[in-house]
Design a protein around this nucleic acid. Structure first.
Length: 375
DNA sequence: CTGGGGAAGGGGCCC
DNA sequence: CGGGCCCCTTCCCCA
């Protein structure tokens, strides 16, 4: 998989995600060179495709994680949808030195926990795409808080091997410079009182609850402390793969799936981050097109593609050039129009016309089992 | 070159 | 908190 470490294009639309391996992976390259001449019968697929797809939840490592943290830290080109108006939940942060230290620390931590010469994910043979019903539990090192208020001592060997029952304290971020201190001299800024030399108590600065271990306090602060609501720093979680930061654990978990790609297609092996993405992909194998246009009866496998198609039936399309007034069904077309030179100075990039969308056709609640959805 | 279709990505929201 | 769904966006390909 190609990863372009080069700079992002200055153009807002061209090759915006050329550097991003998560975006638009080539499909054809990953399909079998000789696809089966007789695809499985849809009747047989029906029971498998939606529920028996291989959501390989055990495979917590991406097959081809081209988003190498070290590369990203060098280039600063993190996968991002910052240009998208929808991407408000994630905060793109600049790479910081301690984040690299963090990655190094996690690497060392993993190597200590996995003494085998080669990590299993690297030595993993070609997937057989067998159904693996084992539930997946995210290792905590994937879910650590990004900016912990308190860091553990700088010697990870002092911390026990993590287990699902006690994950939080084992693989914590490397200490920030201000945290490189003895456990008995905890920061004054955090308000944590651990002055007792022998049995220090770790106190939550928000609710004053104290814990005998840092692990206990850390867990409390991350998951239980209601008084810490609104504390962005304490509630931010960063991805170890790309340094994206999220304010909720769920959002981070969702994002991590884009790296681990736990859902694999039985037919071609292509991996996806979410089951419904795999569902859509499987439609490319079965030819199922449950979304049909009520104007021309053309069918689509993807609702968004139908929505884009509906624009072609509209005289006034969704995206219009404020310079010349021409409307376009897709933003990309408008962008091309602008790049080609609309010629009207001062024209804003585009004008969004949501009213041009045939919403009445789009927003129908569609049962998942409905064979055809007419719009 | 333009417009459209196909496929896929991710975040947000709701249950 | 997780799954499912919605919506928007992007990239590639082709007519």
């Amino acid at each position: 998989m190609l990863v372009e470490d080069s700079q992002m294009s200055s153009s807002p639309m061209t090759k915006k995600y050329a550097h991003c391996p998560l975006k638009k992976r080539p499909v054809r390259e990953e399909r079998p060179a000789t696809p089966p001449t007789t695809p499985p019968h849809p009747a047989h697929l029906a029971t498998r495709l939606y529920y028996d797809y291989n959501c390989d939840m055990e495979n917590d490592e991406p097959e081809n994680l081209s988003t190498k943290p070290e590369d990203l830290s060098k280039t600063g080109n993190y996968p991002s949808k910052a240009s998208s108006p929808m991407s408000t939940a994630s905060v793109k942060v600049e790479p910081r030195e301690w984040q690299q230290q963090h990655l190094d620390y996690l690497s060392a931590c993993r190597s200590r926990l996995e003494p085998t010469p080669a990590p299993p994910e690297l030595a993993r043979p070609t997937p057989q795409y067998a159904y693996l019903p084992t539930l997946y539990t995210y290792p905590f090192e994937e879910l650590y808080p990004a900016t912990p208020t308190i860091s553990p001592p700088a010697h990870p060997q002092l911390y026990p091997r993590y287990s699902p029952a006690s994950p939080p304290s084992s693989c914590s971020p490397p200490p920030c410079p201000e945290d490189l201190r003895s456990p008995g001299s905890v920061s004054s800024d955090s308000g944590v009182s651990v002055s007792a030399p022998r049995r220090p108590r770790y106190q939550c600065p928000d609710c004053a609850k104290s814990y005998s271990t840092y692990s206990g306090l850390s867990k409390h602060q991350q998951y239980h402390c209601a008084a810490a609501e609104g504390s962005l720093a304490r509630k931010s979680f960063s991805c170890k793969f790309c340094a994206k930061v999220y304010t909720s654990l769920g959002a981070l978990k969702m994002h991590i799936r884009t790296h681990t790609l736990p859902c694999k297609c039985h037919l071609c092996g292509k991996a996806f981050s979410r089951p419904w993405l795999l569902q859509g992909h499987i439609r490319t194998h079965t030819g199922e097109k449950p979304f049909s246009c009520h104007h021309c009866r053309r069918a689509f496998a993807d609702r968004s593609n139908l929505r884009a198609h509906l624009q072609t039936h509209s005289d006034v399309k969704k995206y219009s050039c404020t310079g010349c007034g021409k409307t376009f069904s897709r933003m990309s077309l408008l962008s091309k129009h602008l790049e080609g030179g609309c010629g009207v100075a001062g024209a804003s990039p585009y004008e969004y016309r949501p009213e041009a969308l045939p919403q009445s056709h789009v927003h129908q609640a569609l049962p998942p089992t409905a064979p055809v959805h007419a719009y």
